[in-house]
Design a protein around this nucleic acid. Sequence first.
DNA 1: CGACGGCTTGATGATCATCAAATAGGGTGG
DNA 2: CCACCCTATTTGATGATCATCAAGCCGTCG
Lengths: 229, 229
Amino acid sequence: MHAQTTIALADRVDYASWSDIPANGQIVLNLKAKEALFCQGDDADFVYEVLDGVLTAYTLLPDGRRQVAGFHYPGDIIGLEHGRTYHCNCDAIGQARVKSLPRKTLLRIAEGQPKLASKLLEHTTSQLAGMHDHFVLLGRKSAMEKVASFILAVAKRHVADDTCEVRFQLPMTRSDIGDYLGLTIETVSRCITKLKLAGIIELPSPASVRITDIRELDKLAGETGDAVC
Amino acid sequence: MHAQTTIALADRVDYASWSDIPANGQIVLNLKAKEALFCQGDDADFVYEVLDGVLTAYTLLPDGRRQVAGFHYPGDIIGLEHGRTYHCNCDAIGQARVKSLPRKTLLRIAEGQPKLASKLLEHTTSQLAGMHDHFVLLGRKSAMEKVASFILAVAKRHVADDTCEVRFQLPMTRSDIGDYLGLTIETVSRCITKLKLAGIIELPSPASVRITDIRELDKLAGETGDAVC
DNA sequence: CGACGGCTTGATGATCATCAAATAGGGTGG
DNA sequence: CCACCCTATTTGATGATCATCAAGCCGTCG
């Protein structure tokens, strides 16, 4: 599983980011749809950067209940763990490509490269920040608010890529969305239908969304009014 | 608010952890019960280490709904943020003491001290790992499972400190617990009562807990069976 | 064309929030 | 030292939200 293309990169003195690290030990993995990158409990020997596609990080309970912690897009770093093993599963949603680097190598390089080290720290703290929003969503929002927030969040990721067009694809299934929001697929589906009937979004196909009334969607997401101290 | 005792520490070449950093700019703050350490939106100029007491990190929605992201005990580091500002509120639950250090200072020192830098990274990745459990709890567990998991988690923090006695204090209110678990205080209270009636825990006072049947509590927490891949 | 997987829609019910009130504990002031 | 008050907690009754069970739909792929 761990040997395909090796990428070649320029050698530098100062590695300001992962991309600047030479190719030593770096391998690109091609993942098929639904293929696992790693599982909870596996030795966390590799750290990955997403090149292409979208992946899910999730936890399973023994009885099969599943909680998706997040979706990882190109540029995201996955698998930088605390202990010896991964504490969640990570699957490709569709076809995907990731670049891998042995954790030890990355950490060794980071020791001599303050800029890289601070990039890594920034990366983890930014993840922490995002997780706070996810906590609020899971613990305190209604189904409708959850779905509205989710659509807005995905939209924001894509508006950066695309033009200003508020139309984009949902790469993940309803089941992924439900497990991310702490809802069942039925509830997700019903909320999306309601948004459609209310004229707030359009669904050319189940996987593609166009936001027609972003202001209303924002209201429904339940965060209008901004930070209160 | 930001000037009280200055602590003196030995000067060293290598700062393997925060405690090894000299006193320059380090200030100890004494917080009264319910006093805020910082608020969401404040400039995140300081990083803190808890010396004494327990603090809550939480987010508020405009309508007053509150989600507690976590409780911080002595030794924990708080306020190492991604952006310019704090993204959550942080209050002392009871009386507390924290040590503060300007973020810039900490990061500058870390640049020259790989060991400290990796300590910081470890700290954030360990927080990330803990948050995954919190996601599962919020998104996929029943009220009873949430409360059981919570009591077990608090117990684990305290068993380390104390003897093997499975008896400890809950420093936080039912409201804090509810906002951490995504439940109302009534539901928390009812679950605790059920546990009491089932002979699984004892409550000498609302704030002190003794676990009498930890095996059963574990079962109710819903994670028996361990990691599945 | 038929079968499969993912999505939608419908009917019903359990769980947990809400509203309301009683109780207990802790601190204050007389 | 005791009575009182304030707050936190517990308990109870009711109802809304969302999960569950079940069936139908739609597009895709063999």
